[in-house]
Amino acid sequence: MKFLHDLWRSQSEFVRTFGAMTLFFFQLLRYSPSTLVRRFSLVVAQIFNAGALSIVIIMVSGLFVGGVLGLQAFANLERFNAEEATGILAGFALVKEIGPVITALLFAGRAGTALTSEIGLMKATDQLSAMEMMAVNPMQRVFVPRFLGGIIAMPLLTAVFTMVGLLGAHLVAVELLDVDVGAYWQQLQQAMELDDVYEGITKSIVFGFVASLIAVWEGYNSVPTPEGVGRATTRTVVSTAIAVLILDFMITAYLL
């Protein structure tokens, strides 16, 4: 009986949180157009915060992920005398899967946590209440610019990650392992369709929405104490990682 009661409690809690989050999401959407028009400078500042400040970690990770893909692809394809196809393997993996997914995970770790803790601290130090008391809607001043900044930054970061990754794979395969450079790029170019690129772009846009929403929501919903903010920051990373990986599977299955 207690078990059923607990189950019911946790389920209704989940539904309540999910409902509140959905309402929050609609609020964000509702204020997005006006914020874009009237407070564009705030959005730009947040694109800088979420995007430009993440670029180092994105590029370094991209270079090494691309390199390791090149290594693995080469090692396995060599057995079939197909090492020219290294480019295809590494390229497809990067453009369609690894690029969007790892970028989203890195984004959650670098930009998502920053967003959550910043908003959580603003809440804990009454800055959000102060704004409301000054008749300024925190939605327009705080939440929506950060949300939009994340959405815009994510596809751009994904593009950077994928390009640097391709460069890393090229360096390993062509410069290090002596795959013929012409064959390497020509095979990749022939095999890859525009649809494959679209799939990567679609994913990065969806991940941008999800990662930004979770980061901003967790900050908004955090318990306004030091430990509450810390816990919210952790939740941002965990929830984003799970959501991104599940969505990645669903989008891939749908587009196949």
């Binding site: 601290l121 603003m122 009454d126 102060a130 409301e132 008749a135």
Partner: peptide, 20 residues
């Protein structure tokens, strides 16, 4: 209406609540 009212009210928070 609430926002119009709040423009007429100043509030000093315990820790100041300055925008950091």
């Amino acid at each position: 209406g609430l926002y119009a009212l709040r423009k007429r009210i100043g509030m000093l928070f315990q820790n100041g609540a300055l925008l950091t």
